[in-house]
Design a binder for these strands. Structure first.
Lengths: 204, 204
DNA sequence: GTCTATACTCTGATAGAC
DNA sequence: GTCTATCAGAGTATAGAC
């Protein structure tokens, strides 16, 4: 099944993936400006001109990474079902968000870097899709509170707190592990802790 | 009163401060590698060679910023008094940490950038002073829990959660404001929300 | 103390051989 | 598709006039 707009051989797709993986590694550590094509090419095991054969510019590589990232990042929130059991839905969201942080820490750091720098390449998405989704889900949370099914608390800041607490384990991984020492599994401990925290915050 | 090791005129001290303030602005936005001396010099209103008259290198400017940052950042935790009232001490800590985020967001982002990048220039401090202080204060929290004065919860992750929740408002400021819209004061709302959260989590 | 000029290296991107 | 060679510009840092 070939696309007329962008025919791609298997090797092309494979190399694009290798490059994007290397770029994720480098951009997530150093941000857009701090990252260099030399570094990305080295991690990818390609020459710099060859990298630029697959992507026209540094900017294009970065854009390719950001495209879709926000969607992936928001999917767990989207999955929160207004018709479901409130406590289960919220706990499921926390669980899925923590799993994302554990399984895709580089994506989390890429996102953190982008926001830290003032979201120069994501502003529109954040002021658009992200804001709308938060408003929608905050309304769902508010309804649950007004029905007395969970405790009253600011629903938007509740969402912020889920983001902050889960992403912290990916973004500040170095610090978390330095403090805990080698004999700990940050994410399983975090799972238990966050379970307790949100239960006590929301259960009535 | 002159120091023999580093005599400094008033104008020298003043210029060093101007440079450090400009550097904080730029480093906190772009990280070490993404920041340029040109940018820092421009923000400082000085020529690049003049900047390098006050600091021998880009590295030296960055080091000057990081030195002392961790201390400032940990001071509120240090102030948590084992002899005080547990609930008041913890709430006071959360309050002071949130005030730090509100009043010194650039410092918070500088720190976040450093950790995101793997803490290449702060590893020792984090594995040393920071870790020790957390261990000490976690023991204090544990004692309060065992005395039944606050609810049982993992004390180290409790400290992580205070960091994550307060720093989020500085580090993800752009996102927070984009979601809340213009008619909100993020920090006063956060103050109320975090008061509720930690009360419900810890009160028995 | 501050500036202009400049040395030298790094970085993004292109040309062209294979 | 991949490589070597290379260019133009940006970057850190220094020299030396004032």
């Amino acid at each position: 099944m070939s696309s007329s707009s962008r025919p791609q051989s298997r090797i092309q797709q494979r190399n694009r993936e290798i490059i994007l993986d290397a770029a994720l590694e480098v951009f997530s550590l150093h941000g857009f400006r701090g990252a260099t094509l030399d570094q990305i090419a080295e991690v990818a095991g390609l020459s710099k001109p060859n990298l630029l054969y697959y992507f026209r510019s540094k900017e294009e590589v970065h854009t390719a990474l950001l495209t879709g990232l926000l969607d992936t990042w928001l999917d767990p929130l989207r999955a929160m079902d207004p018709a479901g059991n409130p406590m289960q839905e919220i706990m499921g969201y926390v669980r899925r968000k923590l799993d994302l942080a554990r399984d895709f820490p580089r994506e989390s750091r890429l996102f953190a870097n982008e926001i830290l720098q003032g979201a120069p390449r994501m502003r529109d998405a954040i002021e658009g899709d992200l804001r709308l989704l938060v408003e929608e889900k905050a309304a769902v949370l508010k309804a649950w509170m007004d029905q007395g099914r969970i405790a009253q608390v600011d629903p938007v800041h509740l969402i912020f707190s889920i983001w902050a607490l889960t992403q912290h384990y990916a973004d500040f991984d170095v610090q978390v592990r330095a403090v805990l020492g080698p004999d700990h599994d940050p994410y399983s401990e975090a799972g238990r802790f966050l379970g307790t925290l949100f239960t006590r915050l929301l259960e009535r």
